[in-house]
């Protein structure tokens, strides 16, 4: 790999800019493909360029056969995200386990005293109200959102923003009773049954989780299942 390719690849990754490293496995020639441009000496025709850009968009790496030999497209997208709303007890194992599983984690809690805990100092924390935080974070198809506070003032605006987004996972902590009341409030705010059915509640896979860490495991397991399995 040429030093200039490595440097540009590292820069794009540091900037959280989607990039694919495309390598001719026969010649070793390489090219970097971004969403709308490309750089590097490897020659690719228009179809190949479009194919590689499409794989990047789908976050898919793989080999394509071409007349010039096999071409490997290695997609580097910024990590998928988990937005955790509520710096409560369960948030601590949840942000840790989600990070270990490869997610970029943002913790949102407008109650500064909660989020100021040392336990969260290694994570990105937003003290904005959830509606403002969500407007800045712009959840997309590679984002999971989990609300933990049980406080309608904090959870509900986050869930409303989540429902208006394309987030692949929306989970809300709370008992069946809490969850039913929450769904009624969201319906009163104009959301349809179909829309609110996107919210996973009770949150997490049913593994009999009791402790905060176990509940965090069940939530990350459910996020994994939705992202990879279903």
């Amino acid at each position: 790999m040429k030093p200039e390719i490595l440097a540009a690849l590292q820069k794009a990754r540091a900037d959280k800019r989607p990039v694919a490293l495309v390598t001719n496995l026969k010649s070793g020639a390489q090219k970097l493909i971004y969403e709308t441009e490309a750089e590097g000496p490897l020659c690719l025709d228009v179809d190949m360029l479009a194919g590689a850009a499409d794989m990047l968009k789908r976050d898919e790496s793989g080999t394509i056969q071409t007349g010039a030999g096999p071409i490997f497209v290695h997609a580097f997208n910024p990590p998928p995200r988990v937005i955790v709303v509520g710096a409560v007890h369960i948030a601590e194992p949840l942000v840790r386990i989600a990070s270990l599983a490869g997610y970029g984690v943002t913790l949102v809690d407008p109650r500064r005293a909660f989020a100021a805990s040392q336990k969260f100092e290694d994570y990105t924390v937003s003290n904005d109200w959830p509606d403002e935080a969500m407007a800045k974070l712009k959840p997309d198809v590679r984002t999971a959102i989990v609300t933990l506070t049980h406080d309608p003032k904090i959870d509900d605006p986050a869930l409303e923003a989540a429902l208006k987004s394309t987030a692949f996972y929306i989970g809300a902590l709370g008992s069946r009773k809490t969850h039913a009341a929450r769904l009624e409030r969201l319906k009163a705010r104009g959301f349809t049954d179909n829309e609110i059915s996107r919210i996973r509640g009770p949150v997490g896979l049913a593994i009999g989780a009791l402790s905060p860490a176990e509940i965090a495991v069940s939530i990350v397991a459910e996020i994994t299942k939705i992202r990879r399995g279903e």
Partner: peptide, 9 residues
């Protein structure tokens, strides 16, 4: 598996 090995120049 197929593995590609390259040197960082």
């Amino acid at each position: 598996v197929q593995v590609y090995v390259e040197r960082l120049d």
